[in-house]
Amino acid sequence: MKFHVQQALRALMLLAFSAMIANLHWTGELTKFINPKYEGLSQTAAALFFILFLVQSTTVISFSKTSHPYHPIGQACCSNHDHVHAPSTRKKWLAYLIIITPIMTGFFVPAKILDAAIADKKGGAFMITQQNQSSKIEDYLTSNEMIDENIYDEHDADPRLLEEKQEMTKKQYEQLKQRLSQQPMLKMTDEDYTIYYEEINQNLSNYLGKKIQIKGFVLKEESFTEQQLVISRFLITHCVADASIVGFLTEFPEAPTLTEDTWLEVVGTIGQTTYGGASLPVIHIDNWVTIELPESPYLYPINVRMSF
Rank of each mutant, 00 (worst) to 15 (best):
residue 10 R to V: 14
residue 12 L to G: 00
residue 15 L to K: 02
residue 15 L to D: 00
residue 20 M to A: 00
residue 21 I to D: 00
residue 25 H to M: 02
residue 26 W to C: 00
residue 34 I to G: 06
residue 38 Y to F: 15
residue 40 G to W: 05
residue 43 Q to N: 10
residue 45 A to T: 09
residue 49 F to D: 06
residue 50 F to L: 14
residue 50 F to I: 15
residue 52 L to D: 14
residue 55 V to A: 11
residue 64 S to G: 05
residue 66 T to V: 03
residue 79 S to K: 08
residue 79 S to V: 15
residue 80 N to E: 07
residue 86 A to W: 15
residue 88 S to W: 04
residue 90 R to G: 12
residue 93 W to C: 09
residue 95 A to T: 06
residue 99 I to Y: 06
residue 111 A to C: 10
residue 116 A to G: 11
residue 119 A to E: 03
residue 119 A to Y: 04
residue 121 K to T: 01
residue 123 G to S: 05
residue 129 T to W: 00
residue 131 Q to Y: 11
residue 132 N to R: 07
residue 133 Q to P: 01
residue 136 K to N: 07
residue 138 E to T: 14
residue 140 Y to V: 14
residue 141 L to I: 14
residue 144 N to R: 09
residue 147 I to C: 15
residue 148 D to E: 11
residue 149 E to N: 14
residue 151 I to F: 14
residue 155 H to Q: 06
residue 159 P to T: 04
residue 162 L to I: 14
residue 164 E to P: 11
residue 165 K to F: 11
residue 166 Q to Y: 13
residue 167 E to F: 11
residue 173 Y to D: 09
residue 173 Y to N: 12
residue 173 Y to H: 15
residue 174 E to M: 08
residue 175 Q to P: 03
residue 177 K to P: 10
residue 183 Q to K: 08
residue 198 E to H: 04
residue 205 S to W: 05
residue 206 N to S: 05
residue 208 L to K: 03
residue 213 Q to L: 06
residue 215 K to F: 07
residue 219 L to F: 15
residue 220 K to V: 10
residue 220 K to F: 10
residue 221 E to L: 04
residue 223 S to T: 10
residue 225 T to Y: 11
residue 225 T to F: 14
residue 244 S to T: 15
residue 249 L to H: 10
residue 250 T to L: 03
residue 251 E to T: 05
residue 254 E to H: 03
residue 262 T to W: 07
residue 263 W to C: 04
residue 264 L to H: 04
residue 269 T to W: 06
residue 271 G to I: 08
residue 281 P to F: 10
residue 283 I to L: 10
residue 283 I to M: 12
residue 284 H to R: 06
residue 286 D to L: 12
residue 289 V to E: 04
residue 292 E to S: 13
residue 293 L to W: 03
residue 294 P to M: 01
residue 298 Y to R: 14
residue 301 P to N: 02
residue 305 R to D: 09
